[in-house]
Amino acid sequence: MSVFTVFAQLVEDLADLLQPLFGATAAAAAIVLFTALVRLLVHPLSRAAARGQKARTALQPKIAELRRKHAKDPQKLQRAVLELHAEEKVSPLSGCLPGLLQLPAFFLLYRLFSSTSIGGETNALLNHQLFSAPLGGRFADALGGGGLLGAASLVYLGLFALVTAVAAVNYRRTRRTMAATAPVTVADGGQQVPGLGAMNKVMPFLSFFTLFTVAVVPLAAALYVVTSTTWSAVERAVLYS
Rank of each mutant, 00 (worst) to 15 (best):
E65G: 06
E83F: 06
A58L: 11
L77Q: 10
K76R: 15
I63T: 08
R67T: 03
D73N: 09
Q78W: 03
R56F: 14
R56K: 12
K72N: 13
K76I: 10
A80E: 08
Q60W: 05
K69Y: 02
R68E: 15
A58T: 06
D73R: 06
E65C: 03
Q78F: 01
Q60I: 00
P74S: 08
V81L: 12
I63S: 11
Q75S: 12
R56C: 00
H70S: 03
R68M: 10
H70M: 04
E83D: 14
K69W: 01
T57M: 08
R68H: 14
K76A: 15
P61L: 12
Q60G: 08
K69P: 00
Q53A: 12
E83W: 02
E65S: 06
K69D: 07
P61R: 11
E65F: 00
L66H: 01
R68W: 01
A80K: 05
V81S: 01
P61D: 07
K54R: 08
L77C: 00
K72P: 02
R68S: 14
V81F: 11
K69N: 05
E83V: 05
D73E: 09
A80C: 03
D73A: 12
H70G: 00
D73P: 01
L77F: 03
A71Q: 06
E65H: 10
T57V: 09
E83A: 11
A64P: 01
L82A: 12
R56W: 11
E65M: 09
V81E: 04
Q60C: 02
R67Q: 14
Q60Y: 07
E83C: 01
K72Q: 13
L77A: 04
Q78V: 07
Q75T: 09
P61W: 15
L59R: 03
A71E: 12
R79Q: 12
K54I: 05
I63L: 14
K72C: 03
R68V: 11
K54L: 14
A64D: 15
K54S: 06
Q75G: 07
A58M: 10
A58W: 09
K69R: 15
P61G: 02
A71G: 06
K69S: 10
A58K: 09
P61N: 05
R79L: 13
L66P: 01
A80H: 10
A80L: 06
E65N: 07
